[in-house]
Amino acid sequence: MAILIGYLATLGVYFCIYNIFAIGLNIQFGYAGILDFTVITFMAIGAYMAGVGSLGPAQPGTEIYYILGLSLPWPLALILGAVSAGVLGYLIGLIALRRLRSDYLAIVTLAAGSIIYGLVGNNTKIFDGYEGLVGVPQPFNGVLNLSPNTYDLVFMIFAAVIMLLLWVLANRLYKSPLGRAMRATREDLDVAEAFGKNTYRIRMMAMVIGAVFVGIGGVLTIWFITALAPAGWGTSETFVVWAALIVGGMGNNKGAVIGSFLVAVLFNEATRFLPSINGLPSLIPEIRNICIGALVILTLRFRPQGVFPERKAKFFELPLTGRGREREHEVVVTGAEE
């Protein structure tokens, strides 16, 4: 029973984390139309920075190297992770958002991601290279003295609270005039610019906010599994987030929820526990990646709006005094049009 609860709690945590990733990508792509093909890099930077923030200094002689090692309390480590992801988002945005064609933007984000992957992997001094960080301390674990399964449950609640907070903020952003301006840049960059919107700044905001969200998801990830190595954040992981957003429906945060549940939890995480086939250890992840790619392509082909399409904006309207007059107008319009 305890094992089942632990397992469900684990899935619950993954659901919350992927949901945060998907909402972050939704702010970048669904709101502002930024093709971020390196979502998972923001997760990694958030995770690593929170990791080296929570860990103590690297011990000489252990052959394990990493920067910082600040032994920060968890709230500060969380902030460090989130801010680092935001800064990286800003740096990539500096290049990618200079009014480039959308394909250039995609190339730059994808290339930046693979450069960072190589830099982190090849330089053992930053985050211990391809070995990655291990033994990252978990929040409240030392204090509460819980059994592993109970801790997972507590962590799930913790992750759910953070997810809810981010969800509320993302929805506020969507409904605000800023979110509207972001969608206008998504719809037509030139027109939004011609209407006085500083589109570079607006898109940069979406880029950075999205990166911060994904970075926070990364912080939760490294706390939960207490380790992270580059193998855990390849291109295919980015695509899982894209799949969650596209299947769920971009532009709508409800879509991000259902998408993360379907793709990230049911499909992605549940298949991780399948027994691997003898002699072919990589076959299961390969099949999983092929299916996720196919799922996205089929969704775009047959239901491009996703499970939950973006909804029309609603405004509070006072009854219009000229409504009688309006009807005459409409007659004129149809008369003139046909």
Binding site: T235, W242, N289, V296, L300
Partner: peptide, 16 residues
Amino acid sequence: FFLLIVTFGLQLILLN
């Protein structure tokens, strides 16, 4: 936009 996502998905499928 979406063609790029499609080819990105194709990359994942074909390479795997």
